[in-house]
Amino acid sequence: MSQCEDAFGTYEKCDFAEGMELEKKEQKKAPKGAAPSHLPLSPERAIALLYVLLAVAFVFFMALTIVNLQRVSAVWEELKRARMHTESSHTTAWYNLSEVQHSLGQQLSGDLQVIQGQLLRVSREVENVWRNLTQCRAECGEELSDRLRVLAAEKPWLEVVLRQLTEVEQEQSRALALLNASLEETRGLSARFEALRLRAGCPTGWQEFATSCYFFSTDAKPWLTARNYCTNHKAHLVIIDNEEENGFLARHITDNQVFWLGLSDTESEGNWQWVDRRSRSFLSWNNGEPNDAGHDGEDCAIIYSNGRWNDIGCSSNEAWICEQTF
Rank of each mutant, 00 (worst) to 15 (best):
V114P: 03
V114N: 15
V114L: 15
V114D: 15
V114T: 15
I115S: 15
I115K: 12
I115R: 15
I115W: 06
I115F: 07
I115E: 15
I115C: 12
Q116I: 13
Q116G: 07
Q116N: 13
Q116P: 01
Q116V: 12
G117E: 14
G117Q: 14
G117W: 03
Q118V: 08
L119A: 10
L119I: 00
L119E: 07
L120H: 10
L120A: 15
R121W: 02
R121M: 09
V122S: 12
S123F: 01
S123T: 10
S123W: 01
S123D: 06
S123R: 09
S123L: 06
R124G: 08
R124Y: 03
R124Q: 12
R124L: 10
E125Q: 11
E125V: 05
E125L: 11
E125T: 10
E125S: 07
V126S: 05
V126Y: 05
V126L: 09
E127L: 07
E127K: 07
N128P: 00
V129G: 00
V129S: 08
V129K: 00
V129N: 09
V129H: 05
W130I: 00
W130M: 04
W130F: 04
R131G: 02
R131Q: 08
R131S: 09
R131Y: 06
R131C: 00
R131I: 00
R131D: 05
N132G: 02
N132R: 09
N132S: 05
L133H: 07
L133Y: 02
L133V: 02
T134A: 07
T134I: 01
T134C: 00
T134S: 06
Q135V: 03
Q135P: 00
Q135D: 04
Q135S: 04
Q135T: 04
C136P: 00
C136E: 03
C136G: 01
C136N: 03
R137H: 04
R137Q: 08
R137G: 01
A138F: 04
A138W: 03
A138L: 05
E139N: 05
C140K: 02
C140F: 02
C140N: 03
G141W: 08
G141R: 07
G141N: 10
G141M: 07
E142S: 08
E142I: 03
E142T: 10
E143N: 06
E143M: 06
E143A: 11
E143D: 10
L144Q: 06
L144T: 05
S145P: 01
S145E: 14
S145G: 11
S145L: 12
D146E: 13
D146N: 14
D146M: 10
R147T: 04
R147Y: 10
L148S: 07
L148P: 02
L148A: 09
V150F: 11
V150I: 12
V150Y: 12
V150D: 13
L151E: 13
L151C: 09
L151W: 11
L151N: 09
A152E: 15
A153S: 13
A153W: 07
E154N: 11
E154A: 14
E154L: 14
E154M: 12
E154P: 02
K155E: 14
K155Q: 14
P156E: 12
P156S: 12
P156K: 12
P156T: 12
W157V: 14
W157H: 13
W157T: 14
W157K: 13
W157Y: 14
L158C: 02
L158N: 05
L158R: 11
E159G: 09
V160Y: 11
V160D: 14
V161Y: 04
V161S: 08
V161Q: 13
V161I: 15
V161P: 01
L162W: 08
L162P: 02
L162F: 15
